[in-house]
Design a binder for these strands. Structure first.
Lengths: 157, 157
DNA sequence: ATATATTAAGACATAAGACTCTTTAATATG
DNA sequence: CATATTAAAGAGTCTTATGTCTTAATATAT
């Protein structure tokens, strides 16, 4: 598993938030209901994102969370770093602490190449693009609306 | 973490075995000492590989384990599948159970492309190539011999 | 003020992964 | 045959990730 479950949950919630253009606060309860993620657990995850200034939160009635920046300015990678940490993106495939250019493990070169592609992807894709992907998919298949497209995934896992 | 620790340990041990051309049984104790991996834990991991017919084991004096096939015929991927399972190579980046061509998650395409590259890599690289990499690295830097190259990594992690 | 809605924080519970030890089975050697 | 050497199997323990609950803090509305 490349990303932790926490991170996956954070990403799913982020994309859902990004798809809500009109940017008012959304309650975590609503997010957890739509995404079929434990409310308690999702709360913890989103707290991390709030601390990392990716989300803005507001307590009390009409409170909730929303993206702290336009969806186009939050990169996939930002979410991953906020939740799983930078280290998770830098690991040697064999888990060797000293692995690097100076002391490459047998897989270093091949793995580095893949990692570069992966990091490029994570760096270039924004939440906006991910949410737009949802919308275009919707446009091309009118039988499935955004909410369904997202929700159908969220069977209990 | 893409691969489990068990899997990393299995790969490290495999590469070490592959670098021992002359293919007599090597004791797990010797492997665990050289790789600085817990003997007990490595034993469990290698048992999985034995069950998967990647290793051959032999009990009693002069016993140990060795590759069940020529190193050139054991792919990186075989070790990963034996230890982490096929499922680990097939996961959706967001952990969505139904994700696929028919019901792609927002990241499906990009992630699929990366996964294809990764699987190609895992499929094409054999233990022989990984062990040869060790040897050529040795040749290009005579101050570091194979054992040191491998061992220097194995600080406690 | 009081009641209500919400996130934050911290404590707790459960599950999975990582690691350890003991016993058993197989084999070799004297 | 007796002893030593090794992996296999199974039963633990420890740690980390995941998931749940309770209380506190903050805001709104009446």
């Amino acid at each position: 598993m490349l990303l932790s479950k926490s991170c996956m949950y954070g990403l799913r919630a982020s994309v859902l938030l990004a798809s809500r253009e009109n940017a008012e606060f959304v309650t975590i309860r609503e997010l957890s209901d739509e995404l079929n993620i434990s409310f308690y657990f999702l709360t913890k995850v989103l707290q991390q994102m709030t601390k990392a200034n990716l989300l803005e939160s507001y307590k009390g009635p009409n409170g909730g969370v929303k993206l702290a920046k336009p969806a186009g300015e939050i990169r996939f990678m930002d979410v991953v770093i906020a939740i799983d940490g930078l280290k998770s993106l830098n690991e040697c495939a064999l888990g060797l602490p000293g692995c690097g250019v100076m002391k490459p493990c047998p897989l270093h070169e091949q793995w580095s190449a893949l990692k570069t592609d992966m990091l490029n992807m994570m760096e270039s894709i924004t939440l906006k693009q991910l949410s737009i992907h949802e919308r275009t998919a919707k446009a091309s298949d009118q039988t499935i609306d955004i909410k369904n497209r997202i929700n159908t995934f969220f069977e209990p896992n």
